[in-house]
């Protein structure tokens, strides 16, 4: 790795160990994510992909290891403080606020950037009112417009189809003004058209907004198409990392996926 690449490293994961009782979910995983790239994590079910994201979010505390984000030691932060550093995330099974409108969900993404407290919020005059209206304008113009969800802005989230919910969740994460976005299977359970939409959004977010993206995804077509680098996990260990082309030809990777070369190659899109 050249020096310039080293300077660009935004998120450094070093030798992470995580175990639940006797089960080793992560066993010495290291990775480094560079600023502005799309970094994908793939691997069979139960490989520890989501566990790794949960460590970054501080839902889990690794028993050993270090996670540095722009020089901050994440393990010293509480879960609700992680977002203030500029780390946003979506979940595998949509974790939206079900009984609130789309608009309120996205507004909640901006929570950390708002200043009103329990007094000013209750009086709702002057600064607070201006803040709320500015918030609405920004959300409408930057997020609702971008994600093409104008028609559902006042719908209650749990009444929406799954694909739309995923899109709203992406919107909520974007409202946090993130520097890095952790996406946990954004295309899971979607049809081809919806997948294409989501991929288009991810690419736009990465290129136009300049947000670094960590992507967990099972759709190999998507992963191989849009990733700058791919990291492969299996049984809590990293077995490969590199450009999509390198990874798809890697012996260990092929072995981990089904163990059969022919089948795997076709599945990996080679």
């Amino acid at each position: 790795m050249s020096d310039s690449a080293k300077e660009d490293i935004q998120l450094l994961i070093e030798d992470i160990h995580l175990d639940f009782g006797g089960l080793k979910a992560l066993n010495g995983v290291s990775a480094s994510v560079r600023k502005g790239e799309i970094f994908s994590i793939i691997g069979p079910n139960g490989a520890g992909k989501t566990s790794l994201l949960n460590c970054i979010n501080r839902f889990y505390t690794p028993s050993k290891g270090k996670i540095l984000f722009e020089g901050h030691d994440l393990l010293k932060y509480k879960p609700h403080k992680i977002s203030t550093l500029g780390i946003a995330r979506t979940f595998q099974n949509v974790e939206l606020f079900k009984y609130m409108t789309v608009l309120d969900n996205i507004k909640l993404g901006r929570h950390i950037h708002l200043k009103s407290g329990f007094l000013s919020g209750g009086i709702y005059y002057g600064k607070t009112r201006r803040e709320e209206i500015e918030l609405r304008e920004e959300i409408e113009e930057k997020i609702i417009d971008f994600l093409e969800i104008e028609h559902i802005r006042k719908s209650i989230v749990h009444t929406l189809p799954f694909g739309m919910q995923k899109r709203v969740e992406l919107g909520r994460a974007l409202a946090m003004k993130p520097k890095i976005l952790l996406l946990d299977e954004p295309a899971a359970g979607m049809n081809l058209e919806e997948t294409e939409d989501i991929v288009r959004f991810i690419l736009d977010i990465n290129e136009e907004w300049g947000v670094t993206i960590i992507l967990i995804e099972h759709d190999m077509g998507v992963v191989m198409d849009i990733s700058d680098r791919v990291c492969v996990l299996d049984f809590g260990e990293k077995i490969a990392e590199g450009k999509p082309d390198q990874v798809r030809r890697d012996e260990h990777v092929i072995k981990a996926y089904l163990g059969q070369a022919d089948l795997t190659l076709s599945r990996l899109g080679a």
Binding site: F59, I82, F97, I112
Partner: peptide
């Protein structure tokens, strides 16, 4: 609605 997600939002 979802305390886990609320925490992610910085609440």
């Amino acid at each position: 609605d979802r305390d886990l997600a609320a925490e992610i939002m910085g609440i």
